[in-house]
Design a protein around this nucleic acid. Structure first.
Lengths: 323, 323
DNA sequence: CTGAAAGCGCTTACAG
DNA sequence: CTGAAAGCGCTTACAG
């Protein structure tokens, strides 16, 4: 019922192998023949059968996207956005995107294993980095192509990664506040681990030192107090709007009394006033580049692993003010 | 290199067809033989080759999830959440999930067509409903199995849909506010189309009438004013927190001056105080049931299409108060 | 530049 | 209850 390569071959008066070759734009086939075959294909409305192609070629033409094993993925706009951009770029490469989600490392691992062993995908994009987990160890051990979005901290040379320069971004955040005249700047975080925290905090520290200012790290437990700080570098948008509300309860107004810079430029940044001054991390580029790197890796499995740094962009809005 | 059905057959001392049959738990094969084969499979670490299986059986063992052609998907936690739950249920059924995303109907349609024609998926779950679009028309025209999450408004009898009862939910929201003593209740929306708006507004209207109260519809353009209303039913969480902020700018305090009930119970509901009294729409059930319905449809293509109504749950928090 | 043929790893009537 | 064989729709060395 569906039209196959054979039907096309018959129509074009050639052999099926010739059809296959023109589909893949084989250089040996003459342009004249290619034209003939292409005409037959469109006339018959030919679509390849991916299963047959996969079986014969050994390639899946699909990649797997692995989400982090956390429950609150849906609260972070990043994930949906990166998935969209990954799919966009994948489509350009005629690649299908499948997903692996789960709340535990074990669930994720089993999904990843099944996907690869059943030859449903050729490689993976991991949407989380940091320390190696079961999934990454499995991929490394079995020499399966993958790229990580974020910054891995172990076996870095064996991993292709795509990320922003979080240290630089945080350094620029601090610089920006300093340029507005702020001298007492604090870094606010609700976690004390994870690569994102470490890099952003480090960038802050280094810049503070370079400027000869004093800066402190505030961990927002229950009882948050700004102290004498007049400006805050906050780990991310969600935390920033919570901090701003807490300040407001204490009668402290942003940006009149305290300036706030945060990161990610997500929906939360322009949800309520003051809209946040925040860094756009360029999710589109992160997604596109990671697909491109994976495609490259698939074609050249022995090539060097490398890290791609995607540029960021400061969005100045309402939460910062010159002192 | 990878172990095939033949390897297993040899090891177990049977024919490959017998291996295939025990994989599918064919009733004709004796338990003794099945045991033997299963033993051989685990010993050799057999994994099926999905491509071969797809080619031979004509089934993809995969479903496509189609996201709405809107840019702000990432701002709505619903999408990531439903994707996760769909994948969860799919995995239980040994089905892979692929995705289709795009900003235009045309992009989506072409993705859906390619996925189906290349036999990469057996059917689809659409994450948006309402009026028919190109995608849905294509699926209907070609008799391709699909289920819609939400409420379709055309050719309803030909479509399997999974949704909450938005009318009832809104009616209960209104009822709840009335039970707190509120007599002047308004419905707030920033849109005036879409099934969700229509159903929720209708439920509000009907309940208001049934209670003999007066209610009004407020569209939040630039200059929002509560007027004399002491309670608001707001279309969704995001709008609710924006409304609450605007009220606050006008010196009106929620819930002391005005009560607010909203819908979706997303992250936004417990982001800033007052935490929202809101309806949980049970995304997990929506996701699970839609996969189950699609799986059923795949097995019984001629069965009736039907609508599945998933229960909801009122989460009382800080934004409502007895008058 | 093109064709004929083998093979990818399964499934499934058909026999027995 | 099990086996032998054909076939699913491609790809790709091998010939010519």
């Amino acid at each position: 019922m569906s039209v196959t390569i054979k039907d096309v071959a018959k129509r074009a008066g050639v052999n099926a192998s010739t059809v296959s070759r023109t589909i893949h734009d084989h250089p040996a086939i003459s342009d004249k023949t290619k034209e003939k075959v292409k005409k037959a294909m469109t006339e018959l409305g030919y679509s390849r059968n991916s299963a047959a192609q996969m079986l014969a070629s050994g390639k899946a033409g699909a990649i797997g996207v692995v989400f982090p094993p956390v429950a609150n993925k849906s609260e972070q706009p990043f994930f949906m956005k990166i998935l969209t951009t990954i799919n966009e770029e994948a489509r350009k490469n005629k690649i299908t995107v499948s997903i692996a989600t789960g709340y535990s490392n074990a669930t994720l691992l089993s999904q990843v294993q099944v996907m690869y062993q059943e030859k449903r995908v050729d490689g993976f994009i991991l949407l989380y980095a940091g320390k190696a987990d079961d999934v990454r160890n499995y991929l490394l051990a079995d020499d399966i192509p993958f790229v990580v979005i974020g910054t891995p901290v172990e076996r870095v040379n064996e991993i292709t990664a795509v990320d922003n320069d979080n240290k630089l971004m945080s350094s620029e955040a601090t610089q920006y506040l300093a340029s507005l005249g702020h001298k007492r700047i604090a870094f606010i975080s609700n976690v004390d681990s994870g690569e994102v925290f470490h890099e952003r905090y480090l960038g802050f520290r280094m810049k503070i030192q370079a400027l000869g200012l004093t800066g402190q790290l505030l961990r927002t437990i229950e009882d948050f107090e700004v102290g004498s700080a007049t400006a805050l570098v906050v780990l991310d948008d969600v935390l920033a709007i919570r901090i701003i509300q807490r300040l407001s309860e204490q009668g402290i107004v942003v940006p009149d009394d305290v300036s706030v810079v945060s990161f990610n430029n997500s929906i939360f940044a322009s949800l309520t006033h003051p809209y946040l001054t925040t860094f756009d991390i360029n999710v589109t580029q992160l997604g596109h580049r990671s697909v491109q790197k994976l495609v490259h890796l698939l074609a050249h499995p022995e090539d060097y692993r490398e890290k791609v740094i995607v540029p960021f962009d400061l969005k100045v809005r309402e939460s910062t003010k010159a002192i």
